[in-house]
Nucleic acid binder design. Sequence first.
DNA 1: CCAAAAGTGTTAACAGTACACCCATGG
DNA 2: CCATGGGTGTACTGTTAACACTTTTGG
Lengths: 246, 246
Amino acid sequence: MAKRAGADTPKDDEKRYLARYRPGDFPRPAVTVDIVIFTLVDADLKVLLVRRNEHPYKGRWALPGGFVRVSDGPEQGEDLDAAAARELAEETGLPQASAYLEQLATFGKSGRDPRMRVISVAYYALVRPALVPLIRPGGDVSHAEWHSVSTADSLALAFDHQDILRTALDRIRARIDESPIAFELVPQSFSIAELRAVFESVKGAPLDPGNFRKRFFRMLDDGLVEQVVGKRITASKPAKVYRFVR
Amino acid sequence: MAKRAGADTPKDDEKRYLARYRPGDFPRPAVTVDIVIFTLVDADLKVLLVRRNEHPYKGRWALPGGFVRVSDGPEQGEDLDAAAARELAEETGLPQASAYLEQLATFGKSGRDPRMRVISVAYYALVRPALVPLIRPGGDVSHAEWHSVSTADSLALAFDHQDILRTALDRIRARIDESPIAFELVPQSFSIAELRAVFESVKGAPLDPGNFRKRFFRMLDDGLVEQVVGKRITASKPAKVYRFVR
DNA sequence: CCAAAAGTGTTAACAGTACACCCATGG
DNA sequence: CCATGGGTGTACTGTTAACACTTTTGG
């Protein structure tokens, strides 16, 4: 292992190896991102679906999604998260980073797309109700529509999108009690009742207003939320409004 | 839309479309599965790492893994879960389905493999301590070794495997309180103290024996575990043994 | 007998649930 | 003035955490 003049350093060795390297000709799957986009309209949890106007599953409702742009060159293409953010922006017309976006799971059963082997990395997104009117379906989408999650179950979605939707629902139902995702479905400032409506819609069950209030005040004590000036006009007594901290 | 004789049914339409379809020549990423294999040795949580003997990251420790076998033909290749199970079996020499295996997350940052664009679907596996002596690293693995998770943090793993390992640790630490994965790291029949050791190793903190016992008895009441005949010989008073139900 | 770990019991604090009730407001 | 929903209080229950204690074994 003595060093010869002009000999290999480990770095040289690696450089030569990588320069010689040619991506193998093993077959590769196509990789897509599919996004389960949720919002709340009239205290009802909705998911954005697009109608397919090409085979397979022509005419069926499907989750918005698209291919991940990659390359084997020195620029290897977009990150997975970036691909999801781009698809979300393209399909909704919303500006980048205006919605909460998180990876859900990856679906790669053979045969899930009859055309070719496709592996889909699924994400879920939460869009504030205030942004919903801004949504202008763009890109290659012919027709996008909000569906109530309760009716979307009986809709015979394309591919395995039923599985993906169910997984996303399970995920947000489990996560809403543990993480602050509920604040992604209310306006920047909100009343306690509005936040409760988010929980009720996601959980699909009514909550006791008094008990929820106590739970909310613990969040206040913990500094998770703080009161802001203003009142929310309701059908009865006006309510105080709060905002999520950081 | 009137039906002509011998005209297109929607099915014919779809068949013709699919027959004409040729997978696009869009570049595709390589897709691998990487597995974070955990076990418990002497009440210490271990992870199985392999030493790379090729560039890039030659000489570094890495998670076991390999390419997903796919094709665009009518047989599209193995499911993702099957690929993970196969890799697990190949790398450890254990029979199929002898360990708990679950998808973790998908890692697809551009540049994570300098050779080409690689998207890795990560899984984690839990291997019962009793099976550890049976492990005979096979396949393309030159050298595999159990590392304590505490020391593996400071090991400069290959690729982004440090991220993957940390994600796996976060996952099992969160899941051990919510799901019965703890029983996957203990012999078929076990004492309360042995189960407690699993929790302590995963959480990385000691638990009060008395309080853990009460928690365990709730599991007994719920029918989650049941007592079996026999006793566990310990350094002191022999302990009753139990098994996980279903 | 002694150390060690199995096994038992007690207490306080806290979170979740059910439910009764008051209060301010718009109609 | 009354229905509505915001806002408040209370009693009960179950869970968790801290900790003191007894019992049974091996050495």
